[in-house]
C-alpha cells in the first residue's frame, strides 16, 4: 500500500520534471524559429510598425503615469532620509541613480508584462483557438513569420524605448517635488546629477537591462500564446503564466545583471 503511494508520487515527480524540461526545449526551439523569421519582418516594415503601435504606443500612458509617481515618491523618501544628515542637496543623486540603475528597467519590464505581454498572449492564443493560425498555414503563409516574428521584434524594440521614457519622466517628477515642494535649488539638483551620474555605468547599463527584460518578457508572451491549449481555460492559464513568469523573470534577471554589472 505505502510502497504503491511512494511509487505513485515518484512517478508524478518524474512526469512533472519531464514535462517542464520538454517545455523549456519547446520554448528554445520556438525562439530559434522566431529568430530565423526576423529577416522576413525587415522586408515587411508595415507589419512591424503596426505591432510597434500596439505594444509600444498603447503602453505609453501607463508608463508615463507610473514613472511620474515613482519619481515623485522617490524624491520625498530621499528627502526624509537625507535631511537628517543635512545632505538633502544630494536628493537628485539618489533619485537619478535608483531610477537609471534599477527602477526604470524593472518597473517598465513589470508594467510591460502586465499590459502588453498579457495582451500578446491572449491575442495569439485566440488566433490559435479560432484556427486562424492553422488557416494561415494551410494558405502557405507561415504564422511564425507573419504573426509571431513582428510581435516579437516590436516588443524587443519597444521596451528599451519605453524604459528611457520612464526614466526621463521619473527624473522630472523627482525634480518637480524637490524644487517646488522641498525647496532645493534647481541648479543644485541638476549639477549634483551631472557630476555623479556616469553615462556608461549608469545609463547604458540600465538600457542593457531593459533590452534583456524586453527580450525575455516578449519571448515568454508569444511562446505562451502559441503553446496554449486552445480552450478558454487554457487561454486564461497561459495569460496568467505570461504575467507571473514574465514578472519573476524580470526580477530574477535584475539580480543577476546587477551582480554582474556593478562587480559586487
Amino acid at each position: 500500500m505505502i510502497a504503491d503511494k511512494v511509487l505513485n508520487k515518484l512517478q508524478q515527480v518524474g512526469y512533472k520534471t519531464l514535462s517542464r524540461f520538454s517545455r523549456v526545449g519547446r520554448a528554445s526551439l520556438f525562439l530559434w524559429q522566431v529568430l530565423l523569421s526576423l529577416p522576413y519582418v525587415i522586408q515587411r516594415p508595415r507589419l512591424l510598425v503596426r505591432q510597434l503601435y500596439y505594444v509600444g504606443v498603447q503602453t505609453l500612458l501607463i508608463i508615463l503615469v507610473a514613472g511620474l509617481f515613482v519619481g515623485m515618491v522617490l524624491a520625498l523618501q530621499a528627502y526624509i532620509v537625507l535631511v537628517d544628515f543635512g545632505a538633502e542637496e544630494s536628493i537628485s543623486l539618489m533619485v537619478s541613480l535608483s531610477i537609471l540603475r534599477e527602477l526604470g528597467p524593472v518597473f517598465t519590464g513589470l508594467l510591460f508584462a502586465g499590459r502588453a505581454g498579457s495582451a500578446l498572449t491572449a491575442e495569439i492564443g485566440l488566433m490559435k483557438s479560432t484556427e486562424q493560425l492553422s488557416g494561415m498555414e494551410m494558405m502557405a503563409v507561415n504564422p511564425m513569420k507573419y504573426i509571431i516574428a513582428p510581435r516579437f521584434l516590436a516588443g524587443v524594440i519597444a521596451v528599451p524605448l519605453l524604459t528611457s521614457i520612464f526614466m526621463a519622466i521619473a527624473i522630472l517628477g523627482g525634480y518637480f517635488v524637490a524644487t517646488e515642494m522641498l525647496g532645493i535649488y534647481e541648479g543644485v539638483f541638476w549639477s549634483q546629477m551631472q557630476n555623479n551620474v556616469d553615462f556608461y555605468d549608469d545609463v547604458i547599463n540600465g538600457m542593457i537591462k531593459s533590452l534583456v527584460f524586453g527580450f525575455v518578457v516578449v519571448w515568454i508572451a508569444v511562446f505562451e500564446g502559441h503553446d496554449c491549449m486552445p480552450t478558454s481555460e487554457g487561454l486564461g492559464q497561459a495569460t496568467t503564466r505570461t504575467v507571473v513568469h514574465g514578472s519573476l523573470a524580470v526580477l530574477g534577471l535584475d539580480f543577476i545583471l546587477t551582480a554582474l554589472m556593478f562587480n559586487v
Binding site: 484556427e131 488557416g135 494551410m138 494558405m139
Partner: peptide
C-alpha cells in the same frame, strides 16, 4: 500547399 491545397475550416478561420 500553395500549389495544390485549399482548406475550409469549420469556423471559417477568417
Amino acid at each position: 500547399r500553395r500549389r495544390t491545397m485549399g482548406m475550409l475550416f469549420q469556423s471559417g478561420a477568417l
